[in-house]
């Protein structure tokens, strides 16, 4: 077995900085397209962050609200672009970014499965093979043929997870998507995630509020604070750093 290839770097951030432009109003933003003199404020969301993630790793990003976790995951998915720095991604990304992740609300769950599959470059015959697995996994029963707009947020999250996880990703990116699911569903997800990490050497990048879940899913933890990467180690140490055990009274 080629050890080098097994552990090759699939995600690399080099001095990545992301600034969001904030305009006073919608009109100001329109004027700014045509004129440089329109004033805006800047929000530094990610500040000079560098790290590498190797194939088969499972990494949790920890940090308070607004620390820049979602922004990092969006840049990995290539739906947000860094203001400066370099990002390298090697592999097919399947992302579940925040809730409701990327469904056409007017289309049925089943049609959305096909649409997603097609957008990931799968053939219809390949999707048809995965269809039953996904429908079963999502536990939507007859709702699978109803428009997604009629789903509860939990149902959307289940469908999102079922699609992302079963669509044969090489890199799986999950942002807070499991917070709405119930315990049983979470357990099922964990088993499936562990299965694809072990069997297919999938790389997992995970953001969650819940420390318990980070521990369940990941072996490595990265702690973010105000846009900076402040700690990067195995998950237990990262959790200790992020949420130190309270001294006894």
């Amino acid at each position: 077995m080629n050890e080098n290839n097994e552990n090759k770097v699939v995600i690399e951030f080099k001095n990545v900085t992301k600034r969001y432009k904030l305009y006073k109003s919608d009109k100001q933003r329109l004027f700014a397209v045509f004129s440089k003199s329109v004033k805006y404020k800047e929000k530094l969301a990610v500040n000079d962050v560098s790290f590498q993630i190797r194939r088969g790793e499972s990494v949790a990003f920890l940090g308070k609200n607004g620390a820049g976790k979602s922004t990092i995951l969006k840049m990995m998915t290539e739906v947000a672009f860094p203001t400066s720095g370099e990002i390298m991604i090697d592999g097919r990304v399947s992302a579940l970014l925040e809730l409701s992740s990327g469904f056409d609300m007017e289309m049925t769950g089943r049609d959305n499965i096909y649409l997603k599959g097609q957008l990931y470059g799968l053939k219809n015959s390949e999707i048809a093979e995965l269809e039953d697995t996904i429908v079963d996994f999502a536990e939507l029963d007859e709702y699978i043929d109803q428009p997604v707009r009629t789903y509860s947020s939990g149902m959307r999250a289940r469908l999102g997870f079922a699609v992302s996880i079963n669509i044969r990703p090489e890199i799986l990116i999950v942002d807070e998507a499991l917070s709405v699911g119930d315990k049983e569903f979470r357990k099922k997800c964990r088993q499936k995630v562990n299965e694809i990490i072990e069997k297919d050497n999938v790389t997992l990048v995970f953001v969650t509020h819940s420390i318990g879940m980070a521990k369940e899913f990941c072996k490595r933890g990265i702690v973010m604070k105000k846009g900076k990467l402040v700690y990067d180690s195995d998950i237990d140490d990262a959790i200790k750093y992020y949420d130190p055990p309270k001294p006894k009274k």
Partner: peptide, 11 residues
């Protein structure tokens, strides 16, 4: 209208 293609996946 097709916001989800822009903000949720590489498209």
């Amino acid at each position: 209208k097709y916001k989800f293609l822009v903000t949720k996946m590489k498209f």
